[in-house]
Nucleic acid binder design. Structure first.
Lengths: 358, 358
DNA sequence: CTGAAAGCGCTTACAG
DNA sequence: CTGAAAGCGCTTACAG
C-alpha cells in the first residue's frame, strides 16, 4: 500500500545474508520506509517513548505486520543500554531446589518481555564473582543472585552498577533488594514438631557450614531445643553438604558413634533422603525406629518412601518473588515482596516417639 | 607509558555513566588510544583475525590490562554477527533429567567462551517455536534443542539460518546434527533383565505418547517380549506423563483392573518412583511382591528405597556431547559425537520372580 | 602489517 | 507530533 519512495538503500549485505539465510530479517529502517515515516518514529511507537499520531501509528503497525519485523534486542541493547535480559546466578542447574526456583524466575520474567541468563556458581565464591563479571559484560539489565557465597559488600558493589535482588540474606542497600526466608524459624518449627511427638533426643544433620542457610537452620534447631529446656548435645549434630550422599554419610557417622536418638532433622530434603537410605541399610524403619524430617519440601519429597515430613520452602514461588522484585527495581519502585512464612508439612516419616525412647 | 596523543574525544556520556556507575567500562577505542594503535588493530589482536607485529601486540595487551578492558559482547554481536551465545531449548528447568543435561551443556560451552541461553518449551510445540523465535531475535550463534515436539521439518528450517543440534532424533540434514540415544535398545535391555529374572508378566508404564522417547521405549518393550516369544498384553500397558504423580496413577489403574504381573517397567525413573509409592500404599513390597525398573538413571534413583534398577541414560553427558557437537558445527566441521550405548544398572528394586508367578 | 571508514540495527537528545 | 543526526562499541572489507 505505501508507495515505495525510493529504491531500497539497504540491499542485504553478504554478512547479513549468511546470518539469516532463511528470511532476510526486517529492520526498523525497512519498516520506517514501508510506512513512510522516519526510523525515530518507529522507534518511539515501539517503545511508547512519545505520543505519535494515530495515523502514522497505524501505518507503522501495518508495515511491521507485513514485514514480520521483530526488533533486534542486540542492537537495542547497544543503542539504548537496555538488553531486556536479567542475569541469574544460581549454584547449580541440576539442583532440585534451585531448578524449581529458576523455573519460577523464567516464567515471571518472560511474560514481561525479559529473558533470563542463567549461570551457575558451583558453590564457589570466586566462580560466582566470575559469573557476575560475565553478566556485566553482557550488559544485563539486572542481576538476581540465589543465595550464594558472595559477601554482602560484593553485592552492594554490584548494586552500584545495576539493580540486584538476592535471596537468603537480610541486607538492605541502595538499588538492592534482599528476599529473605526465615530459615531459623523453619528449623525451629521442624524441631518443635519432633518435640511435640515426644522425641527428646533429636539428631541434626546440618548443611555446609559456609552456607548461610545452614547456619540459620542450625540456630533454629538449637533455639527450639533450648526453649523446650533441653540440652544441645553436640554428639547429635553431624555435618553434611546438602546433597543426598552426604546425608547417608552423616547418618552413618551418627549411628556408628552409637549416639542415641529417636528422630533426625536434616537441614534439607536431599540429606534427609540420604539419611533414610542409611537407616534402611541397617534395617532401621522410618518412622517406627526413627522419625526423620527434612527441609525445603522438594516436589520429589512427597514421593519418598515413606513420604517425607518437611518444612515448606517454596522454591518456585521464591523464584517468582525474586523476579517480581527485580521488575519493580527496574521500574524504579521499591519492591515489597515478602517470602511466605515457613510451615511444617507433616507426612509419614515422622511419628510419635516410642514410650521407651522419650 | 603510552604518551597521550590527543585529548580523549570520548568523555563518558551521561547514559554510559548511569549504565555503569561503578567503573566507566573501558572500550576498545580507549585501549587503542592507550596503546597508540588503531581500533582495527586491537580488534584483530583480540580475534586473531590477522597477524600483528609483536610490538604492537604487547602494547595492546598492556593497555588492556591497565584499563581492565573486557570486550562488549553486545557490540560484538551487532558488528560481527556473532554473539558467542548458544540458545538451548529444553522442556523444563526444573526437571531432574533435563536439569542435569543443561548443566553438562553449560560446562562445556563456558570453557570455550560461549554462554548459554536457556529457554523452556513447557512440553508444547507452539511454546518451543516461540522459544526459537526469541533465540533467533537475540542472535544466538546456534541452537541446541533437547528432544522436544517440533517437527523435523521445522528443525531443518531453523538449520537454514544457523547451526542446530537436536537430541532424541534420528535425522540428518545440512547444518544440523542429531545426537540420538538408542531408547528402543535401552527398553529392550530393561525388559530382558526382567525376563532373565524369570518374570513373564511384565507391566509397562509408558510416557506421553506424543513424545518420541515414549514411543521408542514402548517399541523396545514390545520387541523384547516378542523376541522371548511372549505375547504383548495390552492390559499390562498403562500410559503416564513422565512425572512421578502419573506413575502412581498408572500403577493404581493397573492394580485396580486386577491385572496380574510380577514386575513393572516404567518408561522413566520418575514414573517408576511414583509406581513404587502406589505399591507401598497397598502394602506391596518392592521387589518381593513386584520388581520395578525405570529408565534414565537419575542421580536421585540410587537413593530410592529400595535403590532403583534402571537403564543408564547419562543426561549430563548427553548435554556435554550436544554442546561439543555444536562447537564443531560452529567451527564448520562435521560433528562425530555419539551417545553412549544404553546399559542396565541393576540395583535393588528388581529380583527373581517367585516360583508361583513365573 | 595497519588505518580510515563504513556499517551492524537500534535509541535519543536536538531541533523544529 | 516528527526528522536528521549522532552515537552505542565493535568488526570488516577496502586500501595501502
Amino acid at each position: 500500500m505505501a508507495p515505495p519512495n525510493k529504491p531500497s538503500p539497504a540491499a542485504p549485505s553478504p554478512r547479513a545474508a549468511s546470518a539469516a539465510r532463511a528470511s532476510p530479517a526486517a529492520t526498523l529502517g525497512m519498516v520506517a520506509e514501508a510506512a513512510g515515516v522516519s526510523a525515530s518514529t518507529v522507534s518511539r511507537i515501539l517503545n511508547g517513548t512519545a505520543a505519535v499520531s494515530d495515523q502514522k501509528k497505524q501505518a507503522v503497525y501495518d508495515a511491521i505486520e507485513k514485514l514480520g519485523f521483530v526488533p533486534n534486542p542486540v542492537a537495542r541493547g547497544l543503542a539504548g543500554g537496555r538488553t531486556l535480559s536479567i542475569g541469574v546466578v544460581t549454584q547449580a542447574l541440576d539442583s532440585p531446589f534451585y531448578g524449581s526456583a529458576l523455573s519460577g524466575i523464567e516464567h515471571t520474567l518472560e511474560r514481561r518481555g525479559y529473558s533470563a541468563l542463567f549461570v551457575s556458581g558451583q558453590w564457589d565464591a570466586r566462580e560466582e564473582a566470575r559469573c557476575i563479571e560475565m553478566l556485566l559484560a553482557r550488559r544485563v539489565d539486572g542481576i538476581i543472585v540465589l543465595t550464594g557465597r558472595l559477601t554482602d559488600a560484593a553485592l552492594q558493589e554490584v548494586a552500584k552498577t545495576l539493580p540486584v535482588v538476592v535471596t537468603g540474606r537480610d541486607l538492605v542497600a541502595d538499588n538492592l533488594y534482599a528476599l529473605d526466608f526465615d530459615n531459623a524459624e523453619g528449623a525451629r518449627l521442624a524441631t518443635r514438631h519432633l518435640l511435640e511427638l515426644g522425641h527428646r533426643r533429636i539428631a541434626f544433620i546440618t548443611g555446609d557450614p559456609n552456607h548461610p542457610d545452614a547456619v540459620q537452620r542450625l540456630a533454629g534447631y538449637r533455639s527450639a531445643l533450648q526453649r523446650a529446656g533441653l540440652p544441645v548435645d553436640d554428639r547429635l549434630i553431624e555435618a553434611g553438604l546438602f546433597h543426598e550422599e552426604s546425608g547417608v554419610v552423616a547418618m552413618d557417622r551418627l549411628l556408628d558413634r552409637g549416639a542415641a536418638f529417636s528422630a533426625v532433622f536434616a537441614a534439607n530434603d536431599q540429606m534427609a533422603i540420604g539419611a533414610c537410605l542409611a537407616l534402611y541399610r541397617r534395617s532401621l524403619r522410618v518412622p517406627t525406629d526413627c522419625s526423620v524430617i527434612g527441609f525445603d519440601d522438594l516436589s520429589m519429597s512427597s514421593f519418598c518412601l515413606p513420604p517425607l515430613s518437611t518444612v515448606r520452602h517454596p522454591s518456585h514461588e521464591m523464584g517468582r518473588l525474586a523476579a517480581e522484585a527485580m521488575l519493580r527495581l527496574l521500574e524504579g519502585q521499591r519492591p515489597d515482596q515478602r517470602a511466605p512464612a515457613p510451615q511444617v508439612v507433616v507426612r509419614e516419616s515422622t511419628a510419635p516417639a516410642a514410650a521407651d525412647s522419650t
